[in-house]
Design a protein around this nucleic acid. Structure first.
Lengths: 208, 208, 208, 208
DNA sequence: ACATAAACGAGACGGTACGTCTCGTCTTTTG
DNA sequence: CAAAAGACGAGACGTACCGTCTCGTTTATGT
């Protein structure tokens, strides 16, 4: 629980400010951070559905109005909070096998964890929530597509690979298994990596 | 809109009755049907999130209490309503190619439509909702697995195919594309069928 | 709890039936009695507000519909049930003092107990419920008025006594005290009897 | 019907505020008033039994949640609403005859109107509803008792008058007549005042 | 210094749905 | 046909969030 104490916020400044001529009180970076962290916490503990602005407000000591000042609804809050902990997109190494495994693993780690929550949200209220999610995952998808396409360029994967669909397959199975509570384990990683690298459909693991 | 008129229900009988010894007024099949149909309607128009018992009650003229007598919450209602329109599980023909395409198509049709909605529901309230969903999709998954495994038995697919994971791949990509609003079209059908049959990862469609 | 067993009701007949020529199955007197007794029980335990047809049905094993066949709503049921235990109207003795005390005491006993409950009912639904209550209490009021008026005739009370209003005073204070939970005890009996007999307003009891 | 328009509430202030340190949005006095007025309206039109929070909400345009924020159930709402229109307790003038008549008249006006409704409520749900009603009527009873006792002090009424029981007699007969729909008219006022002042039991009005 | 402007906390408000409850009606089967 | 069983419509209950709003307080600027 991250209760923040704005008394210590005196003198805080110049965080997230584009430039100089701003009048009035600055946006408190502590508040901003605390809200995002608490959102992540609640998402972990309770999932997207049971995330609520009231809970985040209560946990942080930040008022509801402040949260609604910066995020128009809980979906956008969740999206930004998840973006906040997502880390850097993949850097390809040139080792096709390792890179493909990394792509699979990152997909499992992200969608299997919090990113998956946001796919379960109701996108109906907020017309461009879908766009926001696309913006959130875009860089990662681009990086993953880059990995696949450069491997294809090297001849390690089919030259005309439909990377979009391949990534949808990966994201899809992870999301699906998360929902139906089937394991997201090393076996799956192996199966998916092998599928992409060699075109072998998932098979039962051989006894070692 | 399916307003029902119970005045015409006089003399209704013998629907859904297993047999004989039931006392008291029978469950009105009109009511039962109307609720399920209206639920399907609302699911189509508004999606699961915006489905509500009140809407179904208003649309059908069936009282809320009657709905709650038979379904404990909207998730269970949605599950039964979807089950109600799902049709028979696939019958394999022995033609591997046709059967696999049928599996793909049925998955797209079901999860791409209403069945997908229910995967997006919040399963937290109702402890055995997950089991109910499993019961709902079980027969279809079993049928699909049967298709794949008998093809494998004929030697048309790898003998040790992990059918669970293959079906998760199919269900997953369909659900994922439904969520992110990417097409569920003939191209996808072709790509998925070919992937299963020949192990070729999805590739860009060739110009004809 | 008065569960009745209709198996023993075989052959029962002709109780409370107007007369001989009735066709079809007779109204079961066991059922009738059991319902009235259970109603009295529930009234005692829970009061009118929390009396419900369902509770009476559950307690007796008589079905709701049977109850509704004979009594149109719970108010009428309560009225009849109370009438059922009310005993005979007062017989004046000619001893004015004793008779007046008896009137006071009977009023306290009746309205302070179950009869009071029925005055708290909502009379809005059933237009002639008021008339039914009047019919119920009529004989008792008539007897009480008779007592007062014959005492007046003997010269023991004012010759032009407004017996209606005097009885309203008695009924009123008993009902009021029942509601506000003030005692209905011997002191009150004395005060009221003395008030009627001697025209002394209630005064604090003298130390003995 | 008192639909309120909060758009005009901008700038509203200083109503019901004791002073200074209140934070957050103020309780809207328009809302508060509108709810109480509507409650009084419904009580007059339909009586306590048919009063409902939903009706008050619909009539005022105030949301149910707002009503429940301030009043825990309809009994408490009714009590406050009635308190809101009850006017000041009686001020004795020293003219015994006039004061006693005023006591009688106020009792008839209050209990014969809305205050009587609340005595018919079911006090079972809300454990301290009885206390609330006592708090509501307390000041008026105290004022009335004061009138009687100061008249007794002057020697105009018996020195040991049991004012509680006398007031119960008044409240009781008014409530009783309201229930059984007998008149609460000038004749009754005269009868009761004369009874208290002179100890004459109610008698039939003499022809003039 | 002092006005101005924005951030912030507190919390009231309308709205919508939830799931529960009881009432009185209606329908069906059994005896 | 009486009685038991129990489905049904109606409608109020009280709860829980949502997202909006108003209001007073707290910090920065800029003049």
């Amino acid at each position: 629980v991250i209760r923040i104490d704005l008394a210590r916020n005196r003198g805080a400044r110049d965080v997230m400010t584009t430039q100089g001529e701003a009048r009035g009180r600055k946006r408190s970076p502590e508040v901003h951070q605390a809200v995002l962290f608490a959102t992540v916490e609640v998402l972990r503990e309770l999932g997207y559905e049971r995330l609520s602005i009231d809970k985040v407000a209560a946990r942080t000591g930040v008022s509801k109005s402040t949260i609604y000042r910066w995020w128009p609804n809980k979906l956008r809050l969740a999206i930004e909070a998840i973006g906040h902990i997502m880390g850097e997109p993949l850097q390809p190494t040139g080792d096709t096998q390792a890179d493909v495994r990394a792509v699979v693993q990152r997909t499992i780690d992200a969608i299997g964890d919090l990113l998956g929550e946001v796919f379960l949200a109701d996108l109906g209220h907020d017309p461009d929530a879908a766009r926001r999610i696309a913006d959130l995952v875009g860089p990662y998808r681009a990086a993953h597509a880059g990995v696949l396409l450069s491997a294809a360029a090297r001849g390690d994967l089919p030259y005309d690979l439909d990377s979009t669909t391949v990534l949808d397959l990966l994201g899809g199975i992870v999301l699906y298994r998360k929902i139906v509570n089937r394991p997201l384990d090393a076996i799956l990683t192996d199966q998916l990596a092998e599928m992409i690298l060699r075109g072998t459909m998932p098979h039962a693991p051989r006894p070692t």
